[in-house]
Design a protein around this nucleic acid. Structure first.
Lengths: 228, 228
DNA sequence: ATTTGCCAACCTGTATGCAGCTATGGAATG
DNA sequence: CATTCCATAGCTGCATACAGGTTGGCAAAT
């Protein structure tokens, strides 16, 4: 399982290679909670792992800090940021709006491609049932995000959509374990609904479907927090 | 005129000092078109100017590239990105939506502060009439942006609002010269309208006012492009 | 005169040494 | 035994040397 070989870039401008690979790898680890909030990352340690010097690692860490995923303090190290409940609420509220906005900038010609991806994901989700494989589930979500992201014709919205997907995902995954079956079922519904919308060529509907399922997830997280 | 001494940071997390100063300075120069699109920036040259080594300069340039304001190519240098008409249209369309969204997350307690800022800006705008001082005009817009930005209670929206303000501004300023008086008049109206909205405590109105004036600017730019 | 190939100057990407800062543990003192 | 101080190890921030890549110009051959 080569984790750095994630799918191709959805953004217009492709950043540099090596640093970007490290960046994506670390970002994914953070979002997967393999690097939990509060964990301290050492530049030397990472440099050793990736078989490079500290310089490219530092660049990747600086991007992560710019994304708000980490925080670097002089003399201490780079630590994964915690999940501030306020920021969490803000991000979710914002993502709801972004999804609603999606239909206003539909990339019609991407619909067939997205549809074929959805069909693939449906199969993979079926194969995933009962396995409780968090990372595979996450990877599936990740690809769903990419597929829907490509349906947005507006570059600015697309970038923002992506940016806050990653900010939200790691919060979201902290409560997956408690609701794994529900999440699977929910994702299956989402895929089915999106499939229908794509067959009808209704990209605006895709946005609303996504919005609703984000809201479902939000509700789930909220109830989990009040329960704890 | 110390240009690096721009107002305090509106974001929640304050990045490091030295690099951020360089970053802001360069960003402002790009947005002011003092560094026009296509201009090639050398790391060594900038390092000499800021009296630091290449390392912090590189960090700042990488942030700029991440913002989409520059593009660095190996063996060549860092060049200011051009204003792709498509990206321009996307950014503007997106900003309209963001401004409309502003009223949904009002920071009520910031209203008095914003009002006093607006009153200050009104005075300064009056003093600016007939001077045709682009940079002063830009600085004024910049502070207006900060004031309205603080009225947004949602951190994610606030960050995005800021991000695309800078992306849009440099495009916008390329056509100011042809419409300077109109822009002054327009800005005066905007300030007056915002003043009224703030006195009424209607932050949602502030968002719509901003949206409308963005649309005016967009129309102006569009007509300028068709004219040329 | 035109074209082609090469070389040298310059730029970014990377590695590494050094300085400054922080936290932790132990020793000394009350 | 508790507390305070300090030394030390380890980390990041910065500077710099070196490697790899690109471009433009000059020279040579056609």
């Amino acid at each position: 399982m080569n984790e750095s070989a994630t799918s191709e870039n959805s953004r217009t401008r492709a950043p540099r290679g090596q640093v970007t690979d490290i960046y994506r790898t670390l970002r994914d680890r953070i979002c997967l909670l393999r690097y939990p909030p509060g964990m301290l990352l050492g530049e030397h340690e990472l440099a050793e792992e990736f078989a490079v010097s500290r310089t490219p690692v530092r660049q990747a860490l600086q991007r992560l800090e710019y994304d708000g995923l980490t925080e670097t303090r002089n003399g201490v190290g780079t630590m994964v940021t915690g999940v501030d409940p306020n920021a969490f609420r803000d991000i979710y509220a914002f993502r709801l709006r972004l999804s609603e906005m999606m239909g206003e900038f539909p990339a019609e010609d991407e619909a067939p491609r997205a549809l074929s991806t959805i069909l693939l994901l449906q199969d993979r989700l079926v194969a995933l049932r009962g396995q409780r494989d968090m990372e595979a589930f996450w990877q599936l979500n990740h690809e769903l995000h990419h597929a829907t992201n490509r349906l947005i014709a507006n570059l600015a919205l697309r970038e923002t959509h992506e940016r806050y997907y990653f900010q939200a995902s790691r919060i979201w995954y902290s409560v997956i374990e408690a609701f794994f079956e529900e999440q699977i079922t929910d994702l299956a519904s989402e895929l089915n609904e999106i499939e229908g919308a794509l067959r009808a060529g209704d990209i605006r509907a895709v946005g609303y479907i996504q919005r609703n399922h984000i809201a479902f997830g939000l509700h789930r997280v909220a109830s989990a927090h009040t329960a704890v």
